[in-house]
Amino acid sequence: MNSKYLIGIIVAIVVIIGAYFALAGSSNQQTIQIAGSTSVQPVAEKLAQAYMDKHPNVKINVQGGGTSVGITSAQQGTADIGTASSKPKDSDAQGLVQTQIAKDGIVVIVNNANKVSALTINQTKDIFSGNVTDWSKVGGSSGAISVITREDGSGTRDGFQNIVMGGKNGTKIVSNAIVQSSTEAVLQAVKGNPNAVGYISLASLNGDVKAVTINGVAPSEKTVSDDTYKIVRPFIFLTKGQPTGIVKDFIDFTMSAEGQNIVKQAGAVPMTSS
């Protein structure tokens, strides 16, 4: 009884391994390694998928890790393309060629029941730094603001810190802010609490929450594209030196009309506004 099972399992394993070698070993594949910002990851994955469909002999691995991982892995050559969702510091970017592939708006969201629908950048900063703690101070009905942020190192938080809070040495996000580990969790937290405020990528915005206007401009693909909406961050591909071979081909594909269309489908705002 037992040995029968065992033999069955061994046979299954041998078949699987055999099949794997038979399928994987048949062609001489080229690979592109992409690593970096988790915000760029979904866009890069869609691009990679489309590129691999056209070029079956190329395999593209897309990994997350964060903008800092993108920069270091491009520097060290562990990835062919490093991705970043904020502009790298000049000292970090030495020897790296930057190609901006898309833009992304960061949307400040509140509960649908919240009366506040317009904030200025300074009000946003005050709310997230803990200077303003009640909605009545920014034109809402009274209620203690509960700030929801992302974890340290998240690309969205990075971008928010850079643009709204004044960069790495700017104001800190209030230390008793609730930390949620994903966009989805931020959405749920804001949806479930009338006094919550959070921030997410424009691509993830849906009707469950309300996006506030910043300095009077509502976030949309158009306002992000023409830079009238203020909280915009770049999606950047980093390569060590000028890209060559299939890496160059892939980046060219990304910047082509077809590639930019995929960028749009993936929720980011393409560089060429049409």
């Binding site: 988790t38 997350g64 890790g65 964060g66 800092s68 991982v69 270091t72 974890e151 340290d152 190192g153 998240s154 930390v179 580990s181």
Partner: peptide, 8 residues
């Protein structure tokens, strides 16, 4: 778990 993905 929160920060491992990004840390360097």
């Amino acid at each position: 778990a929160l920060e491992m993905g990004y840390a360097t």
